[in-house]
């Protein structure tokens, strides 16, 4: 059992289980706008291991308008995605960049991976 947990498979599984629990808790917390204070023992623990700033800061920053800077920048340049759209322009900007990045990554992988596609198989000589 312990051997299994410490194997790579076990560690991945554990990490996955941890992530599932964390996301479940975070979803409820997000309903509260990631506000409130951590219980004493937890903030104690997190500050002792130096994670406190990371946790409270990163989650408190996860608020509407993550793309605000980009929105401002784009708007100042007179760009508009679609006059009908009410959503944050910055979000759309991010998603466009992500799309373009994925296309580039996809094409790059294809160019590299193309080499082992084959129309002809030469069987290696065995000794």
């Amino acid at each position: 059992m312990i051997k299994y947990i410490l194997s790579p498979k076990g560690i991945i599984l554990l990490a996955f289980a941890g992530a599932v629990v964390a996301v479940s808790v975070l979803m409820a917390w997000s309903e509260l706008g990631f506000s409130g204070t951590l219980p004493d023992w937890l903030s104690d623990l997190t500050s002792r291991i130096g994670l406190h700033g990371l946790i409270s800061e990163s989650f408190n920053n996860l608020k509407p308008g993550m793309g605000a800077d980009l929105t401002k920048f784009l708007e100042s340049k007179g760009v508009s995605v679609n006059p009908k759209s009410t959503a944050s322009l910055g979000d759309y900007g991010y998603i466009l960049f992500m799309g373009i990045a994925l296309v580039i990554a996809g094409i790059a992988i294809m160019i590299i991976g193309k080499e082992d596609a084959e129309e002809k198989t030469v069987i290696p000589v065995k000794k």
Binding site: E118, E119, K120, T121, V122, I123, P124, V125, K126
Partner: peptide, 10 residues
């Protein structure tokens, strides 16, 4: 003799 075998996928 594997040198005498060619496989094509066309």
């Amino acid at each position: 003799d594997r040198r005498r075998i060619l496989a094509l996928w066309l």
